[in-house]
Amino acid sequence: MRRSSRLGLRPLSEIAEAGLHCFTQRGFRLTQMSDIGAELGMSPSAAYRYVESKEALFHIAALHAAGTPLGGLPLPVAVSDLAETVLSIEAIVHSWPRWPALRAALDHPSPVYSLEHEAEGIATELYDFLAATWRLIVLFDRTANDIPSLKTAFTQQYRAPYLADIVTWFGRRYDGDGPAEALARSGIEAISWLAMRRRTDPAAASITEEEARRAAARCLIALLQAPQRRPAM
């Protein structure tokens, strides 16, 4: 019989947090259950009081990164295999908003004089999404080679369609001399750094959340304001 009492046990969120740190540092294949004990100062076998396997540990780490409460799960947590986790993550990905500002800009373009406002809305929308989900996205990226089905769930169902849409939008709006797709992707990368990688970069510790969000809002605007095409001679 599986235990359900938590008397004397740490909150499951602490175990999930330790697992999240290990998986994002080492990937899925190299992370061992004993690593969680070392992370939390417990005996090597102590993690098995909370999860029955490394797959179950990854499951709660992914849910924790997505902001899903873990308090109702019976202990030790068990999953049949990683396919169960992939299904849970697919459900989370499908629940994410489908870029209303970008969608509106594609379906109903603003007048040229409102382009700056339109670009700011799209950039801010991306920043806010990445700032809210960055830990889960980092986990996706770090374990993609070990769990290809997880990469498919995120990349093919969410990231790839978004990239295609924003490149399309940028190409319609850009009237400069540079390569539109490369510029659009560079803007996304800049916003991604501000929303995600800045948080783990010691050299960026002085940048506040407000400053980062404001800078992100300017990224696409600055790229769209590149020098205009020269008239043909």
Results as ranks from 00 to 15, higher is better:
Arg135Cys: 00
Pro76Thr: 10
Ser45Trp: 00
Ala160Phe: 05
Thr68Ile: 15
Trp193Asp: 13
Ile122Asp: 05
Asp177Glu: 13
Glu14Cys: 02
Ser13Met: 14
Leu194Gln: 06
Thr24Met: 08
Ala164Pro: 07
Gly178Thr: 12
His64Leu: 12
Gln157Pro: 01
Leu224Ser: 10
Ile15His: 02
Leu194Asn: 08
Ala232Cys: 14
Asp107Ile: 04
Ile15Leu: 13
Ala164Phe: 10
Ala47Ile: 13
Thr31Arg: 03
Val51Ile: 00
Gly19Ile: 01
Ser149Gly: 14
Ala56Asn: 03
Tyr127Gln: 09
Ala153Thr: 04
Trp134Gln: 13
Thr85Phe: 06
Leu9Met: 14
His21Ser: 11
Glu210Arg: 11
Leu136Cys: 06
Pro69Tyr: 05
Ala61His: 06
Asn145Cys: 04
Ser43Pro: 04
Phe28Arg: 00
Arg3Thr: 10
Glu14Leu: 04
Arg49Met: 08
Pro100Tyr: 02
Glu120Arg: 12
Cys22Thr: 03
Ala66Cys: 09
Leu194Lys: 04
Val93Thr: 10
His21Asp: 12
Ala226Val: 11
Leu136Pro: 03
Ser206Val: 02
Glu116Leu: 02
Gly71Ile: 03
Ala104Cys: 09
Leu30His: 14
Thr208Cys: 12
Ala215Val: 11
His108Asn: 15
Arg199Thr: 02
Pro97Phe: 09
Asp128Gly: 07
Ala217Arg: 01
Gly187Tyr: 00
Ala160Leu: 13
His59Arg: 03
Val51Pro: 05
Ala190Leu: 11
Arg173Pro: 01
Pro69Trp: 09
Ala184Lys: 01
Arg49Gly: 15
Leu75Tyr: 15
Ala65Pro: 04
Thr68Leu: 13
Pro69Ile: 01
Ala205Arg: 04
Ala16Asp: 06
Ala47Asn: 10
Ser149Met: 15
Pro11Arg: 12
Ala47Val: 15
Leu163Met: 10
Arg199Met: 05
Arg198His: 11
Tyr127Asp: 13
